[in-house]
C-alpha cells in the first residue's frame, strides 16, 4: 500500500476533514480536525451519547497521550499537565467530532501543547540553551536542558532495559523523540506521522532514518555491555 510514490502526496490519512491552514500554526491540525459542519456548530456541553463516544474514541488513549507527553517533556509533572490540558481541549471540541482516529487526534493535541510549553520555557530560559550539534532545523530543535538526565555512561548503566531506552530517547532532540514514539511505540505510518507533525513526508522519513540510527548504535553498545547477562 504505502509506496514510495504515495509519499509525495498526503491524502485523508486519518479521516479528518481538512481545511485551509490557519495561524498560529500549532492550532492548524486541531481545528482542521474539528472543522464545524456548519458555522453555528460550536463546542458545547456533551450529551450522554457523546461522552460515551468520547470515552471510547479519545479517553481510551490516555496512556498513549501520557507516554508521548512524558517522553517529550521528560518530566512527569509537566506530562500530567500537558495531558490534562489536551483532554480539556479535546472535550471542549468534541461536539464537532465527525469521526476519525481518536488516538492520532489526542496525540496531535498533546504534541502541540508540548511545543507551547516548550516555547514558554524558552522565553523564560535563563539557563544556557542546549542545542544539538547537528542543528539543521534551527529553532525547531531547541530543547530545554534536561536536568534529570544522567551523563551517557550513567544512562546506559541503568538496570532496567526500559530505563536505559528512556534515557537514550530523552537525549534526542524533540523532533526526533516524537517520530520515534509515533513510529515505534504507536506504530503510525509515515503519512499519519507527517499529518500529525505537520511535516512533509520527506522530513519524517529523514528524521526516522536519523533517529533510530543514532539510537540503534547506542543500544547496541548498551547490549554489548550487558552481553554476559544476556544469552
Amino acid at each position: 500500500m504505502a509506496k514510495s510514490s504515495s509519499h509525495a502526496s498526503l491524502r485523508g490519512v486519518v479521516g479528518w476533514a481538512a481545511t485551509e491552514p490557519r495561524s498560529p500554526a500549532e492550532e492548524r491540525l486541531e481545528t482542521a480536525v474539528l472543522t464545524p459542519a456548519s458555522p453555528t456548530a460550536r463546542p458545547g456541553p456533551l450529551s450522554p451519547e457523546q461522552t460515551r463516544r468520547f470515552r471510547e474514541v479519545v479517553l481510551v488513549h490516555a496512556d498513549a497521550a501520557y507516554n508521548l507527553a512524558l517522553r517529550l517533556s521528560r518530566r512527569p509533572d509537566v506530562a500530567e499537565d500537558i495531558v490534562n490540558d489536551a483532554y480539556v481541549r479535546a472535550l471542549g471540541a468534541f461536539s464537532n467530532y465527525r469521526g476519525g482516529d481518536g488516538r492520532s487526534w489526542i496525540l496531535t493535541i498533546v504534541r502541540n501543547r508540548f511545543y507551547d510549553w516548550l516555547r514558554d520555557q524558552r522565553r523564560k530560559a535563563t539557563a544556557p540553551l542546549s542545542r544539538p550539534a547537528n542543528d539543521a532545523d534551527d529553532d525547531e530543535d531547541w530543547d530545554f536542558p534536561d536536568t534529570e538526565q544522567d551523563d551517557p555512561e550513567e544512562a546506559l548503566a541503568k538496570k532496567s532495559q526500559a530505563g536505559a531506552l528512556h534515557a537514550l530517547i530523552d537525549r534526542l532532540p524533540p523532533r526526533l523523540r516524537e517520530v520515534i514514539i509515533l513510529r515505534e511505540m504507536e506504530e503510525f505510518s509515515y503519512r499519519e506521522i507527517a499529518v500529525m507533525t505537520e511535516s512533509p513526508i520527506g522530513s519524517v522519513m529523514s528524521r526516522l532514518a536519523r533517529a533510530p540510527g543514532a539510537l540503534a548504535e547506542a543500544w547496541r553498545a548498551h547490549e554489548a555491555k550487558l552481553g554476559e547477562a544476556r544469552p
Binding site: 501520557y66 507516554n67 511505540m185 533510530p212
Partner: peptide
C-alpha cells in the same frame, strides 16, 4: 541493529502508562 532496537522499544514497560491519579 534497527531490528534489535525495534524489539527493545516494543518491550515491556518502555511505553509508560498514565498514573492512576491522572
Amino acid at each position: 541493529d534497527a531490528l534489535k532496537l525495534r524489539t527493545a522499544l516494543r518491550g515491556e514497560d518502555v511505553r509508560v502508562v498514565a498514573p492512576d491519579i491522572l
